[in-house]
Design a protein around this nucleic acid. Structure first.
Lengths: 195, 195
DNA sequence: GTTTGTTATTGACCGTGGTCAATTTATTTT
DNA sequence: AAAATAAATTGACCACGGTCAATAACAAAC
């Protein structure tokens, strides 16, 4: 039987997260150093790693939070009615993840971690994204604007796959090319949802 | 004007690679330590990093070699005639990459590095895979066994995307479930290539 | 063979992530 | 309130990847 954490611990954790966000705001996720976090937060190094398994764990929490916000916003937009609109709605996420390679890495790594372990916001986020997509696709199927020969779930998961695919490519070509990941996404979605 | 490397350098490089392969054979890619490599190879640490940018660079060469072998084998099999056969032919690759997360990570990271920089076997491998797939899909399109409304190139690239997708999922669920990544791949390929 | 210039290797050194026995702080028991 | 138990924090310590000025090995020029 594990006890509830004491107030002090929650405060420490909050301070660590706040400081981390601050550092990220200044220099991006790639600039996050353990030493910096603990010194700014006024705690010892060990404390950080008693709150988060490792730096990736901390990153996962930070990034997971952002993802959740993005999903909230996504959920509140009007449901898209066509493949093109789906791409449009997904654009903010692509933009966010496309910003830094670390984000992409962390997302991929934590995307399916059994959410049994606390703080795995990311896994939850992925599931949520699929179910949001699914909820959009089903009406479109009913309206006959996309294919109906496959379950909406599979189509939704496939879209997620394509998202990762274009992002992977995006990070490889050192984005000197003017085209955005979103532009790359379009043809896949079109072909995938085709009537 | 850069000169050709001297014999000694080539020998050192060969020794480093040989030793690295040896260590990998013993404990997997995850067990590869710089210290071990250099001590077994009888060189100083700096030498290793004068031959390879970093550990990932070394891994990329090792893994790239394997991938190339797999592609060679894939190229020599009889061209598949159906989506199911495509999955079957891709199985060895899934099996290899699915073995260790590091493999997947490295592949993803180096998959599109401008092959201008030498030793980027992996980027080459990805392009090769797409073109092999493309060469298989075109006859299938001609035979009418798969969809013809999309260019073979896009279909090939999509397949690559699904490969990565199922692998990503595979690594998340800590593969305690009995199902292989290959089984997960099938429905996507079927839906993607559907007539 | 000696000098000069280039390539290859060296290894002490540093930055950073992560650990863990010891210590301090809080909570419960008597 | 004092003693006993548990939670939270500490910081010296280690492992490992990676750097770079110094040095050795080699090749070319004389």
């Amino acid at each position: 039987m594990t006890r509830a954490p004491q107030k002090r611990r929650l405060e420490t954790r909050a301070r660590l997260l706040a400081v981390a966000e601050e550092i990220v705001a200044e220099g991006g996720y790639g600039a996050l150093r353990a030493e910096d976090v603990v010194s700014r937060a006024g705690v010892a190094k060990g404390t950080l790693f008693s709150h988060f398994r490792d730096m990736d764990g901390l990153l996962a929490v930070l990034i997971g939070g952002r993802v959740m916000t993005l999903l909230d916003e996504m959920e509140q937009t009007a449901p898209p009615q066509s493949p093109a609109q789906i791409c449009a709605v997904l654009a903010p996420q692509l933009e966010f993840v496309g910003r830094e390679r670390v984000i992409f890495d962390i997302l991929l790594r934590y995307s399916g971690v059994t959410a049994a372990q606390a703080e795995e916001v990311i896994a939850e986020g992925f599931l949520r994204q699929v179910s949001i997509l699914e909820d959009w696709l089903r009406p479109m199927q009913a309206a006959g604007s996309i294919r109906t020969d496959q379950p909406a779930l599979l189509l939704a998961e496939g879209i997620q796959g394509f998202l990762n695919h274009v992002l992977a490519i995006w990070f490889c070509q050192e984005h000197d090319t003017g085209d955005s990941p979103r532009a790359a996404l379009q043809p896949y979605i079109d072909a995938w949802l085709v009537t």
